[in-house]
Amino acid sequence: MPNRSCSRDTRIIRIMPPLREEAESLCLGLMMGLVQPVEVISWADRAIAEMANPPIEVIDIATSTRQPSDELARLLKRVPGPANLTAAAHRVLGILRARLVAHDLALDFVVNSLWIFSIEATIPEVERRAASNFSDEYECLDYYGTAESLRDEVVRFLAEHTSEPDGIA
């Protein structure tokens, strides 16, 4: 009997999220100020180039180069297909976390982004309340707490709820 050795393929295969899920991540990122309109247009252009029959909703996005961010967000919400919207939301938190840890964002921007996240993201209610409470805590910094302690609390929240930002723009 011949000696058959098995070789293992150790390459990591990155599985892209469904198109609708990518669109949701971009939409949230756009509303939170983490993604720019040009990144959304580039994503749509790439998606069209990779697909034999791209959905008309993606074509609409690609041709909306002069639309304001809120209109692009509305168009992104219309992209069809299956999606884990909570996973999409958590990928956006991954971007927020990476930029906060790199000291690339001011605390007021992060708190405002989390407030928008709490309103727009499809997430469990407990997570929604926690994200929105940072806004109240920020407003009360003159009376109790410190900006550093609030920042640490935000970092802990993001670490708990973050997914890797693969597949965004």
Rank of each mutant, 00 (worst) to 15 (best):
residue 52 A to F: 07
residue 149 S to M: 11
residue 117 F to S: 00
residue 83 A to D: 00
residue 44 A to L: 01
residue 141 L to C: 11
residue 58 V to F: 00
residue 121 A to R: 03
residue 132 S to M: 12
residue 31 M to R: 15
residue 155 V to M: 10
residue 162 T to P: 00
residue 165 P to I: 11
residue 72 L to C: 12
residue 93 L to I: 04
residue 32 M to P: 12
residue 130 A to Y: 01
residue 43 W to C: 08
residue 33 G to T: 14
residue 50 E to K: 09
residue 99 R to A: 09
residue 54 P to C: 02
residue 115 W to V: 02
residue 96 L to I: 10
residue 33 G to W: 13
residue 103 H to R: 15
residue 100 L to R: 08
residue 40 V to R: 00
residue 94 G to L: 10
residue 7 S to A: 13
residue 166 D to I: 12
residue 56 I to D: 05
residue 58 V to I: 05
residue 48 I to N: 05
residue 14 R to P: 01
residue 77 K to T: 07
residue 115 W to K: 09
residue 7 S to E: 14
residue 168 I to D: 13
residue 40 V to Y: 00
residue 20 R to Q: 08
residue 107 L to P: 03
residue 19 L to K: 05
residue 161 H to W: 04
residue 154 V to C: 03
residue 1 M to D: 09
residue 69 S to R: 14
residue 32 M to N: 12
residue 74 R to T: 15
residue 118 S to T: 00
residue 77 K to H: 10
residue 20 R to A: 15
residue 163 S to L: 13
residue 147 A to Y: 05
residue 43 W to D: 05
residue 165 P to D: 10
residue 138 Y to V: 06
residue 108 D to G: 08
residue 63 T to S: 14
residue 105 L to E: 08
residue 7 S to Y: 14
residue 38 V to D: 10
residue 6 C to W: 11
residue 64 S to N: 07
residue 118 S to H: 01
residue 98 A to M: 05
residue 95 I to D: 07
residue 6 C to D: 11
residue 82 P to Q: 14
residue 164 E to Q: 13
residue 114 L to Y: 03
residue 109 F to I: 07
residue 97 R to H: 06
residue 6 C to T: 12
residue 33 G to K: 12
residue 74 R to K: 15
residue 149 S to Q: 15
residue 43 W to R: 02
residue 13 I to H: 15
residue 5 S to K: 13
residue 153 E to L: 13
residue 33 G to Y: 14
residue 56 I to N: 01
residue 33 G to P: 14
residue 21 E to I: 01
residue 121 A to I: 06
residue 53 N to S: 07
residue 161 H to S: 01
residue 158 L to H: 05
residue 55 P to T: 02
residue 80 P to A: 10
residue 164 E to M: 09
residue 163 S to C: 06
residue 85 L to Y: 13
residue 156 R to Y: 07
residue 38 V to W: 02
residue 80 P to L: 08
residue 146 T to S: 15
residue 55 P to S: 02
residue 141 L to Y: 08
residue 132 S to Y: 01
residue 113 S to D: 04
residue 89 A to S: 15
residue 56 I to E: 09
residue 144 Y to V: 14
residue 11 R to K: 14
residue 55 P to L: 02
residue 88 A to V: 03
residue 135 S to M: 12
residue 101 V to L: 13
residue 86 T to V: 10
residue 143 Y to P: 00
residue 74 R to W: 15
residue 50 E to I: 02
residue 45 D to W: 04
residue 60 D to N: 13
residue 30 L to N: 06
residue 38 V to G: 04
residue 76 L to A: 11
residue 155 V to F: 01
residue 119 I to N: 06
residue 165 P to A: 14
residue 50 E to M: 11
residue 155 V to P: 02
residue 2 P to K: 15
residue 169 A to Q: 01
residue 7 S to C: 10
residue 92 V to G: 07
residue 73 A to G: 13
residue 44 A to T: 02
residue 117 F to T: 02
residue 9 D to E: 15
residue 29 G to Q: 10
residue 125 E to N: 00
residue 17 P to V: 05
residue 77 K to S: 14
residue 66 R to A: 10
residue 169 A to K: 03
residue 131 A to E: 04
residue 38 V to S: 11
residue 37 P to T: 07
residue 70 D to P: 03
residue 147 A to F: 02
residue 68 P to H: 05
residue 44 A to P: 05
residue 42 S to C: 03
residue 15 I to V: 15
residue 88 A to T: 04
residue 146 T to I: 04
residue 167 G to E: 14
residue 18 P to V: 06
residue 62 A to R: 08
residue 100 L to A: 08
residue 72 L to M: 11
